[in-house]
Design a protein around this nucleic acid. Structure first.
Lengths: 344, 344
DNA sequence: TTGAAAGCGCTAACAT
DNA sequence: ATGTTAGCGCTTTCAA
């Protein structure tokens, strides 16, 4: 049995309430230096750690925030989780990571679960924001703070952190055009159900292509789920079904993991990389640098993003009620081995 | 404010304790069908969810288990975490994943933290089991159950799940020999401090090599940390410093992630893969299948392993006090693209 | 500057 | 078959 506050107090010769004030560093605790020291020593000696449950029960706060991500096998979410944790920890909060298994149904369940679960705050990467709008607006307890990544609900009071893929996408498109590609494909994978809303990454890509008068054939827009497996299957199918003369010579994939699926499918189809097919990803996953064919990718400042998001959440949980915030981070292209001159 | 048990009870017209018995499905609750139904309905209507903290405080149990892993960027731990979670969830437990950042100091801290943290059980992948022996034996509360992966403390009462790499390693060695390799290197990466104990994977490899009269030059045994970065650096250095005539033509890396580092270092050094260098990993990480050069690797039944470990833990937490258990799972080689005939 | 007492929401003995 | 009561460990008025 771990020591209780009462025991610490007794060992120090003070009342539990006094010890509590000192141990939690409450500002109104004007304990004398000597008492403070006695209490701290006693706590230390006994190896005291406050029982989170008792404290949570008493304070009505959980000192816990949840992070919802689609798929933990995409290492980018591990990177986020780490960065977030690093901000949360010093603030005394713990992080619970939940994944929706890259499935819209799973995501709905997870939202429900998290909304009524005992956390003080929630950081969300949704695959489909629209799908949860009602649930969240109707069921979010007033006491639960949230921050979104990548999209926002107008007038919801929920802060959002956005990544402006403009620069990165423009650089990617220009890079490919500069290499002589004029049949460029796109693989996007955030939408488990087809036709469900539009992906900003896709729209932006379309726009930039149009601006440059590069035809973007609809059949070169490939829809996949967010996992490497789905990307592999979809792209393999694309390769099998598309006339080689019309086939894209370069693919912009909206994240590194699905880019990996594309790579593998291309290899299995007998293409040489990057000679026969250039591939660009997004996220600059740690992995992308170490692949046998390292991946050209769009990168963004993930630590800053995580820090900002977590700071917003922390502030909201403290009661901050500024107007809804929305900040945007920029992106840029990192050139590696997966892009090359267009084939003849 | 979420509804409390008291409110549910009132809505159903019963006492809190009655409602409690019904809602938690306590066996000694001989409530009549009609009361049971009223309570369930009320709970449902109000969206009641028991306050974990109050319950934990009252029962002295946390319904939580911790999982300690070295490095979440190695996807194999994500795979474990998922598989474990899948067993834990139906049993009503949640999982907290802690990573030691692939650093022995971090691991020591994490052990200390978890031992005194409020979890009912602990599943551990340690990098260095010896380093924690004292801490654990001296500080593990009687009420905390533990299960180890990959090593065991004799007479500790802590169950262990082992992977017998025999078959996999033998197959790996034979595969390489069959391909004509006779200078085979080993990269092992579980020991942050050099000279700290020995790695079973290494010992076994040594043994199998000796048995086949294949000389294993000490300089072809490369020590690295468990991350891809460290493996990359170490192997790069190895390549730069080793006489090409003595250099290994094949490398057995003790996990897929460090195998990836080896691949990349070889590429950057100008070697062609797999012609100039064959590489074998261990773990059969999901990723290894999708790499542009897919990785030959030693695989083992990770779901069964996770299930067994979690079942053991669940049983121990329920009070089971069978003698210490130790089970061993087997492994086998999966041939992919990263291995080829030895160069001339 | 410190202590006494109440109560957070829940469960388990015990009483009815 | 159901209700009453006490208390888990902590924090927080309020009183001393």
């Amino acid at each position: 049995m771990p020591p209780t506050l009462k025991e610490v107090a007794k060992a120090a010769g003070v009342a539990p309430s006094t010890a509590s004030g000192i141990l939690t560093g409450r500002s109104d605790s004007w304990a004398s230096e000597s008492t403070r020291k006695r209490v701290l020593d006693a706590a230390n000696k006994l190896g005291y750690r406050a029982n989170r449950f008792a404290r949570g029960l008493r304070t009505g706060t959980f000192q816990t925030v949840g992070l919802l991500v689609p798929d933990l096998l995409n290492p980018i979410y591990t990177v986020y989780a780490r960065a977030i944790e690093r901000v949360l920890e010093p603030a005394g909060y713990s992080l619970i990571v939940e994944e929706s298994k890259a499935d819209l149904e799973g995501e709905k369940q997870a939202v429900r679960k998290l909304l009524s679960s005992q956390v003080d705050g929630l950081l969300c990467f949704f695959m489909d924001y629209q799908a949860h709008y009602e649930t969240i607006m109707n069921n979010k307890p007033k006491s639960l703070s949230m921050v979104f990544f990548g999209e926002s609900y107008p007038d919801s009071g929920i802060d959002s952190i956005m990544i402006d893929l403009a620069r990165g996408t423009i650089e990617a498109v220009d890079e490919l055009i500069g290499l002589g590609h004029n049949r460029i494909g796109l693989l996007h994978g955030y939408h488990p159900g087809p036709g469900r809303g539009t992906d900003a990454r896709l729209e932006f890509f379309r726009y930039e292509m149009a601006k440059r008068d590069i035809p973007l054939s609809e059949e070169n827009i490939i829809v996949s789920g967010p996992t490497v497996e789905e990307a592999y299957e979809q792209f393999k199918q694309y390769l099998e079904q598309t006339d080689p003369d019309k086939r894209a010579t370069a693919v912009f994939a909206i994240n590194d993991i699905i880019a990996l699926g594309v790579m593998r499918a291309a290899k299995d189809f007998g293409l040489s990389l990057p000679q026969d097919l250039s591939i660009i990803g997004v996220d600059n996953t740690p992995l992308s640098h170490y692949l046998p064919i390292s991946l050209t990718t769009v990168s963004y400042p993930i630590k800053d993003i995580s820090k900002t998001a977590t700071d917003f959440l922390l502030a909201r949980m403290k009661g901050d009620d500024e107007p809804q915030r929305e900040v945007m981070f920029s992106s840029r292209l990192i050139r590696r081995e997966s892009t090359a001159k267009a084939p003849e």
